[in-house]
Design a protein around this nucleic acid. Sequence first.
RNA 1: GCGCCUGUAGCUCAGUGGAUAGAGCGCCUGUCUCCGGAACAGGAGGUCGCAAGUUCGAUCCUUGCCAGGCGCACCA
Length: 704
Amino acid sequence: MASRGRAKLYCFFVITVRGNYRVSLANLQEALSERVRVAAQEAFGVAPEKLASEIPPKTEMGDLAFPVAFELAKLIKQTTGEKRPPRAIAEQLKTALETVPQVARVEVAGAGYLNIYFDRASVLAALAASEEAGTASLSSEPDARPKRMVEHTSINPNKASHIGHVRNAVLGDTFVRILRAAGEQVEIQNYIDNTGVQVADVVVGFMHLEHLTLEDIRALDRSLPADKPFDYYCWDLYTRVGLFYRNDDPNGEMNPERLKLRVETLHALEEGTGEIAELAEYVATRNVECILDTMERLGIRYDVLPRESEILHLHFWDKAFERMKAKGVIHFQDAGRNKGCWVMPFETHTGTDEHEADKIIVRSNGTVTYTGKDIAYQLWKLGLLGLDFNYRLFRSYPDQHTTWMTTVEPQADDGSQAARPHFGGGAVVYNVIDTRQSYPQEIVRRGVALLAPEVGEEASVHLAYEMVALSPAACDELGIQLTDEDRARPYIEMSGRKGLGVKADDLINRLEMNALKEVETRHPEVSAEERALTAHQIAVGALRYFLLKFTRNTVIAFDFKEALSFEGETGPYCQYAAVRANSIFRKLDEAARASAAEFIGAQDKAEVTGVLAGEGGDEVWSLAVLSGRLDEAVAQSAAQAEPALLAKYTFNLARAFNLFYHRHRIIAEENAARRAVLVTVADIARRQLTRALATLGIEVPERM
RNA sequence: GCGCCUGUAGCUCAGUGGAUAGAGCGCCUGUCUCCGGAACAGGAGGUCGCAAGUUCGAUCCUUGCCAGGCGCACCA
């Protein structure tokens, strides 16, 4: 389901890479692919539509391989009936590639692989040169490409965020960074469901369990300690409300009398006026602030916070409803189980006695479901609704970034309004939402496509990911009692209602404390502020990498030992490689750097070629080419909407650098040509590693 | 019942219609005349859930079966 529209996306990114002024191996690779296609067409009259290329498993087998001969053999047989051995076909194509200046030689290997060996010295010079140019001109070009929208985080504003929410936010934020690195224009939205059941429940808690007025709540909020702020308080209160509805028995039945309070409150929230609504507004807004504070710790920010209350009060839903009725997308049921409801038919799900096939959009009491509101919101995101929100400045950051929140008040605009970006109207919308919501997301996508066939289903992408659950060991550590049945399971689902989960700030605090301990023993000489900053950067690196190394469709069974680790395949491992690389350049004198540049850029490449062909040359070279594949990794990660690909690439680059670092003494190298190569490769690697980490939202500390 | 996802080393996970299926952790053995050991190297460890099919070639595609997870609300 999440794969919908991927084929199209891929095309975008090919263009992206091609249109990129930065020289990278991707360009060379593409040029070679084209060459092979043309050669095949000339020699055999046929060519595969899309030419696959791969990276050989070992450096000795070359830098790029085309398994094209196998496919050509098939095509030739199909068109002419002639049988040709793949190896012979490969031999014929070989000559066409040998004339490319950056290709040193071509070999036919195995059953018919075409293995390309780059001219190491000239490719290294190109990589070094593009490094210089790349950093200067990055993001300086105005971009006319259509805007992409990414919605992520979207936590119910009724409690503190937990590790599952953080997976969503980190995934979404990283995907945004990846799109931007690929040259896309992106708008970040964080949807605030401020009129839903979850907020209503906490309001019930404040009003009916604690008997507090809005003024009381404000006073309470002010009195809370910094390490247990408002969202923590709500976390516990929310759990208590859950128990209250069940007459204080966690496994008990819901008490219908007590549930009336929820319904009452919910109606008041939807109405949007009166004391209850005012109280809810305070609760929701304070929770949004707390959640944004937590996300800020992880380097995650938003452009706009659209609220459900505005979807309702600015009549987004009414307009969408009219359109759906007019287009016949939904039907009124005057009989049967769904009597009195407006439903959207859904024929791919077959109905049974227990499960209805159609999806209810408007309930028999006239209220709209979440799915209905989401269709209206999605239409707005795509610029198809013909209505807009009003906005107020919610937060501004020292670096000029601003975050806006929707509001009903048109006059909320103040002097700074001039600087407000235009929101909405994207060409493609990515919704980062838990895989469990695949079904409602599918309805939204289809509803939108039916209303706007011109954009179709491809404009809506559900960026689905699996949940974060708790490992049995983590439950033990949290003091959660498990039944024998639960203990036998691979993981235990978290539950906001039961207050069962690892709070984001608690985990970040623990990571920072652990990192600080390490930094203190290693660097007692630096200031306390710098140690704290470093510890923070390490903590963020550890957490973000931990959440990104799993592919989206893998359930993360959260384990403290794994999440708190700084060794092996972790963020800090990658950061450490970059820190080591930087320390080389801190100690390297100007003369050595100038001399390196001169050697690498020289017309006569004989000496550099000699070094790269000599002892240990393969290893040095493989670090250089791997560094040169960052753009490819980013493009692939964007096309597949899979940040884990970039995480793996980054780790492999760090690993390759650590090996290189271990094997070669760079500053002390006495042979000038050799030192020039080592310095240049180390420089390319550290910059690419830093760039890769930045795309994952991970900073490189000064020292660690 | 129907739909979607998953099954790969002791554990946690990558991976691809093609070259010897990889990494981290754990275990064992090594590496420091060093720009930082949060590191590096080596070793042990695999019927890629089972079975059939398609293919020159399947861990990958198809089908069936087994096992696990998620969903199929007038919740979101």
